[in-house]
C-alpha cells in the first residue's frame, strides 16, 4: 500500500519534472529564435492583428463597464465618509495598478489565447506540425516566436486602452450619473497616478504576455501528449490552456505586486 503510494507520487513528480523541462525548452527555443534572422515580419503583423487589433472592441467594452462599476461602487463607499471627491483617485489607481493588466490579460486569454491553443492543437492532430518538420522548418520558431512578439506588442497597448476607457467609465458613472464635479474627478486622476504605477501595470502586462502566449502555444503544440488526438483532444487542450493561463495570471500578479510595492 505504502509502496504503491510512493510509486504513484514518484511517477507524478517525474511527469511534473518532464513537463517543466519541456516548457522551458519550448520557451527557450521560441525566444532564442526572436534574434535569429530572417525576422518573421509578415507573421508578426498577422498575429498582432489577431491578438491585438481584433481584441480592441472586447477590451474597450470590458474596460468601460469595469470603470463604470468601480465608479458606482466607489462612490457609494466613499460617500459614507464624505470622501467622494477621491473617486477619481480610487478608480484610476485600481485600474492602472491592478485591474487593467489583469482583466486585459484574462480577456485576451479568452479571446485570443483559446484560439491560439485550438489552432495549434488542430495543426498537431492533422500532422501539419509534422509537415513543417519534414520541410526542415522549426515548428516552434514558425508557430510560437511570432506570436510571443505579437503579444509583447499587443498586451501593453491593450492594457493602456483598458485603463483609459476604464477611467472614462468611472467618469461616466461618477461625474455624469452621480454628479461628482468633473474637474475634481479628472484632477484627482491626474494627481494620484505616478509614473511608477503606470510602469508597474506595464511590467505586469509584459509578464502576462509571455506567460499566456507560452501556455497557450505549448498546450496546443503538445495536444497529443496531454489531451490525446481528435476533436476532444483539441477541446481539452484549449480548456486547459485557458484555465492554466488564468491561474498563472493571478500567481504572477501577486508576485509582481509583491516586488513592486
Amino acid at each position: 500500500m505504502v509502496t504503491k503510494l510512493i510509486e504513484k507520487l514518484g511517477e507524478k513528480i517525474i511527469k511534473l519534472l518532464e513537463s517543466t523541462g519541456r516548457v522551458v525548452i519550448f520557451f527557450l527555443n521560441g525566444t532564442i529564435n526572436i534574434f535569429i534572422m530572417p525576422f518573421q515580419f509578415g507573421k508578426i503583423i498577422d498575429h498582432t492583428w489577431f491578438i491585438g487589433t481584433k481584441s480592441v472592441f472586447v477590451i474597450a467594452l470590458t474596460g468601460l463597464f469595469t470603470g463604470m462599476v468601480l465608479g458606482l461602487q466607489g462612490y457609494y463607499s466613499l460617500v459614507k465618509f464624505g470622501s467622494e471627491a477621491a473617486l477619481g483617485s480610487a478608480v484610476s489607481l485600481t485600474l492602472v495598478r491592478e485591474l487593467g493588466p489583469v482583466f486585459t490579460a484574462i480577456m485576451i486569454t479568452a479571446r485570443a489565447g483559446s484560439g491560439i491553443a485550438a489552432e495549434i492543437g488542430v495543426m498537431r492532430i492533422s500532422e501539419q506540425i509534422d509537415a513543417l518538420r519534414t520541410m526542415h522548418i522549426n515548428p516552434v520558431r514558425f508557430l510560437f516566436t511570432p506570436r510571443i512578439i505579437a503579444s509583447i506588442i499587443s498586451f501593453p497597448l491593450l492594457t493602456a486602452l483598458f485603463d483609459v476607457v476604464g477611467i472614462t467609465g468611472g467618469y461616466i458613472s461618477g461625474s455624469i450619473m452621480l454628479g461628482i464635479n468633473r474637474y475634481v474627478y479628472m484632477d484627482t486622476v491626474i494627481k494620484s497616478i505616478r509614473i511608477n504605477d503606470i510602469n508597474g501595470g506595464f511590467y505586469k502586462s509584459l509578464a502576462f504576455a509571455v506567460v499566456i502566449t507560452t501556455i497557450c502555444c505549448y498546450r496546443g503544440y503538445y495536444t497529443h501528449l496531454y489531451s490525446g488526438f481528435g476533436a476532444r483532444g483539441v477541446s481539452l487542450s484549449t480548456t486547459n490552456a485557458v484555465v492554466q493561463s488564468c491561474i498563472f495570471i493571478f500567481i504572477f500578479d501577486y508576485i509582481i505586486t509583491f516586488f513592486l510595492v
Binding site: 489552432e119 500532422e127 501539419q128 509534422d130 509537415a131 519534414t134 526542415h136 522548418i137
Partner: peptide
C-alpha cells in the same frame, strides 16, 4: 514526405502551401 491526409495548412492559400518549403 507526402502525408496520408495531405497536412495542408488551412490558413495558407494553395500558392503559399506549395511555396512554403
Amino acid at each position: 514526405y507526402m502525408f496520408q491526409d495531405n497536412a495542408l495548412f488551412d490558413f495558407f492559400n494553395i500558392y503559399d502551401n506549395i511555396a512554403l518549403p
